[in-house]
């Protein structure tokens, strides 16, 4: 299945819950509504044509106006790659945990939780993963983050 065929297949199935976005490069990217996230993830994994059984990566992006959570998934049997993302506001940065779909989401979600401050519902084990155990200085990957000993690179 080529990328174009994959885009057409995903856009026409799944009740239109995955809206293709034109990036012009890389794996096909889709936008998913926050309320559909868990159902879409499970449907993608269980679809016999796709069998996207592997979550390669999961991360957040702070664009300044909003937060985006991007999921990069792949199929180890069909040799497919696919990305989808959800958009969050800074007021309610909450996503559903995908641990029940891909168990490896566990650590990615912990990392996203501590670095971006994206709360993960039904995760059950949100402890600092990379940051020190006694970290109390907020979420350092946010664009507006600051700390007493944080030195910004001066403009050259």
């Amino acid at each position: 299945m080529t990328n174009a065929e994959l885009t057409a297949y995903v856009a026409s199935h799944f009740d239109g819950r995955l809206v293709p976005l034109d990036t012009g490069r890389g794996a096909p990217l889709f936008e998913v509504k926050l309320s559909d996230l868990l159902a879409v993830a499970r449907a993608l994994r269980d679809d016999p044509e796709l069998s996207l059984n592997y979550l390669c990566n999961l991360g957040a992006i702070d664009t300044g106006q909003k937060l985006e959570v991007v999921y990069n998934i792949a199929s180890t049997t069909k040799n497919l790659r696919l990305d989808f993302k959800v958009t969050l506001s800074f007021d309610t940065p909450v996503v559903e945990s995908l641990k029940s779909v891909w168990p490896c989401a566990d650590w990615y979600e912990r990392e996203m939780w501590e670095l971006f401050g994206v709360d993960v519902l039904n995760h059950g084990d949100l402890r600092p993963l990379l940051l020190p155990e006694d970290w109390n200085q907020g979420h350092p990957m946010r664009k507006n983050w600051d700390a007493p000993d944080f030195v910004r690179m001066p403009e050259l």
């Binding site: 940051l131 200085q137 350092p140 700390a147 000993d149 944080f150 030195v151 910004r152 690179m153 001066p154």
Partner: peptide, 10 residues
């Protein structure tokens, strides 16, 4: 890592 780093001890 002096600039723009949240994790490295200065």
């Amino acid at each position: 890592f002096y600039y723009d780093s949240y994790s490295v001890e200065k």
